[in-house]
Amino acid sequence: MAQEPAPAAQAPIVAFDFDGTITTKDSFTTFLKWRAGPVRWWLGCLQLVPAALAYLVHRDRGRIKAAAVSVYLRGVPHDRLQADADRFAELFAAKLFRPDALATWRRWQERGARMVIVTASPDIVVSPFGHGLGADLVLGTQLSYDAENRVLGAFSGPNCRGPEKVVRLHEVFGPDLRLAAAYGDTSGDTEMLAIADEPGFKVFTAKP
């Protein structure tokens, strides 16, 4: 007699970092460059020089990312940004995704796992990719919006990196969460990998 599928609450939970793990490079930087166009991109880079110099001292990736949000996205309506993110995913998924990461993702899906992307990139940019992959959830850095739903140029919470990835997972799945597997490629994934039965660090290397 065939065994009944496990209820969703009992299904294994698998977490993937996004940039550098599923993709070959940083999706948010690629998105900003694509959206801005060559001239606006380089003008923005000049505006970011002070933030880049400050980064050499504080080494806070969240601060320099917030500065990029302010330069390139401040004042953009949420609906417009969402539409741009959807279009970006349509155009760039095939160019960014690692085939071996996709193969592992699909193997876990076939086993009935709940698939979660946990990323330091803004969730609004990564969510369309997650939708295309059939992800159950995308947890990412959240942008802040004003009363008219326009980007303020800051985050509404912490940069979703390092310990914050586990904090976000615990908020959804509870404090006793144990991941069946987790995959990442930087020190920003260390804490997430530590709560996985099968931690995978830099295991994906294939290019599109």
Rank of each mutant, 00 (worst) to 15 (best):
P128R: 03
A36T: 02
H131S: 13
D79K: 02
D176I: 07
K25I: 10
A103R: 11
V138D: 01
R98Q: 10
Y183Q: 00
I64T: 09
G153Y: 02
A9W: 07
L139N: 08
L73G: 05
V126P: 01
E148K: 14
T186A: 12
K25C: 13
P38E: 11
I124G: 01
A181Y: 06
D189W: 11
A147C: 10
L102R: 07
L193R: 05
I124D: 05
M1Q: 11
V172L: 08
V125D: 01
A8L: 14
P122S: 00
P158G: 06
T21S: 05
T190A: 15
L137Y: 09
E4R: 14
T190K: 09
W105M: 08
V69W: 02
D79F: 04
H131C: 13
P158R: 09
Q47W: 04
T205V: 15
R63C: 09
A15E: 02
I64V: 14
Q10F: 10
D197G: 13
E198L: 14
D100T: 05
A180C: 11
L56W: 08
S27P: 00
P5L: 13
A194K: 07
V118K: 02
S121C: 02
E164M: 13
E171K: 15
D146G: 02
D189R: 13
P128M: 05
V172G: 05
L48K: 03
D197C: 10
G44M: 03
V69E: 08
P12I: 10
D146A: 05
P38Q: 07
A135P: 01
L179K: 09
D176L: 07
A8N: 07
T29R: 09
D197I: 12
V167N: 15
L139P: 00
P77C: 07
P163H: 11
P38C: 12
P50R: 04
Q142V: 13
D60Q: 07
G153H: 00
L53A: 11
V49Y: 03
P7M: 13
R161D: 09
L81W: 03
A196W: 09
A147V: 13
A6S: 15
R40G: 10
L179C: 15
A15S: 04
P50M: 03
W42K: 12
E90L: 15
K33Q: 15
A9N: 01
A181D: 05
D86N: 10
P12N: 03
V125G: 03
F88W: 01
V69K: 01
D146N: 09
E164T: 12
I22V: 15
V203M: 14
Q47S: 09
Q109W: 01
V69R: 06
D100C: 06
F204Q: 04
N159V: 12
